[in-house]
Computed example of a mutant assay.
Amino acid sequence: MAKSRQPVTEEADAGKKPRSSGVTLRDVARFAGVSSATVSRVMNNPEVVSDELRSRIKVAIEHLGWVPHAAARALATQRTGTIGAVFPTLANEHFATAIQTLQETLEQVGYTLLLGCSQYDPEREYRQVRTMLERGVDAVVLVGEAHHPDLYTLLAQRQVPYVNTFAYREGSDKLCVGIDNHQAFFDFTTYLIGLGHQRFAMLSQNADSNDRARARREGVRDALAEHGLGITAAHMVEGYWGAREGRALFSKVMDTPQPPTVVICGNGSFAMGAMLEAMQKGYDIPKDLSLVGFDDFELMSELPISITTVRVPSAEIGATAAKVILAELAQKGSAQSVKFDAEIIVRQSSGAPPKTRRKTG
């Protein structure tokens, strides 16, 4: 009786070692031609070894199908290889860009990103950070410097490093990676004053739980005060988020006895909504009115009237935040805050104020 022939697998047919759940760290080291300690170092502190060595061990791991046991690794190293990040919203284009580069930079050295979304709610942010700490994250990335009053205490008790992003304040004792929002809008307002504007309005994002929005608002006020100008309560309005909100706020400031000659929008969605409302109501931008924004979302340069704005280097902020937190993990106290410059991008929507305002229906 003829013996049955065992089927030949694709891996065996290609001369490859079949993947096995019994593969150990020692097998990976032997295949890569390095010591077990070197493999451990690559897995636990990938940032301290060369790219060539990381690549060689990665090839060995993929070939052998080795999957490190996460619980055992965490017990041995006191690290889980995960970084937590809580962002206010995922609907903001420049937050999404920063998250992408943050994740990519961490992945390059073997870390996994756990992401939360607080919807600008400090209580929710606090709960999400607590949950991440319970899951054993090695560090936390946050947005802004103002958080729940117990958050910094919690992180200190757990001895978990963190970095605040999209905000920078000179003299802060917190690790920060971002722009000086106050300075950015102080400079922006000074530029607009230089064009001849004296009647300003601002569509500000609600600042109750958003220190970046508060800093932008104060930057506008301080620049105006330095030039002997001010902004009326009717022309300083607040809203939450979104183009629809921007349209409503724009109508509100324009429906006043002395309408502004320039409207500053505190975020990109407000700027796009305000522009759509201005076009629908027949304003000739910038002849009748200048309208400027923040964030520099892609659509802002593609609208029929492109929007002058303040550009924030979101991708660079995300990548740098990852590098800063990795440096702090490698050696506590070694990382330093990083300040980025905001850039004024002048487009079609801004110009000198009108000598006489055209009546609109």
Score class of each variant (00 low, 15 high):
Thr256Val: 15
Gly246Met: 05
Ile231His: 02
Leu276Arg: 06
Ile231Phe: 06
Ala271Tyr: 01
Leu291Pro: 12
Gly239Asp: 05
Asp284Asn: 11
Glu245Ala: 13
Gly266Asn: 02
Asp288Glu: 07
Asp255Asn: 08
Lys287Ser: 14
Gly246His: 08
Gly242Lys: 06
Lys287Ala: 15
Thr232Val: 08
Gly273Tyr: 05
Glu238Met: 09
His227Phe: 15
Met275Ser: 07
Val292Tyr: 11
Val253Glu: 01
His227Ile: 04
Asp295His: 02
Val263Gln: 04
Gln280Ile: 01
Asp296Cys: 14
Lys252Trp: 00
His235Asn: 07
Ile307Ala: 11
His227Ala: 13
Gly239Trp: 03
Gly273Thr: 09
Thr256Ile: 03
Met254Asn: 01
Asp296Ile: 11
Leu289Pro: 04
Ser306Ala: 15
Met254Asp: 02
Ala248Asn: 12
Asp296Leu: 13
Pro259Met: 09
Gln280Ser: 09
Lys281Ile: 00
Val292Asp: 05
Ala234Asp: 15
Lys252Thr: 14
Pro286Ala: 13
Val263Lys: 02
Ala233Glu: 15
Leu249Glu: 06
Gly246Trp: 04
Arg247Lys: 08
Gln280Lys: 08
Ala271Lys: 03
Gly273His: 00
Thr261Gln: 09
Ser290Tyr: 11
Ile264Ala: 10
Leu289Gly: 04
Leu299Glu: 13
Pro260Glu: 01
Gly239Lys: 09
Ala248Leu: 15
Asp295Cys: 09
Asn267Ala: 12
Pro260Thr: 01
Thr261Glu: 08
Thr232Pro: 06
Pro259Ser: 14
Ile307Gln: 07
Met275Ile: 01
Asp284Gln: 14
His227Asp: 13
Gly242Leu: 06
Gly282Thr: 05
Pro304Gln: 06
Glu277Tyr: 00
Pro257Asn: 09
Arg244Gly: 00
Ile285Phe: 15
His235Lys: 04
Met272Gly: 01
Gly266Ser: 00
Arg244Ser: 09
Ala278Cys: 05
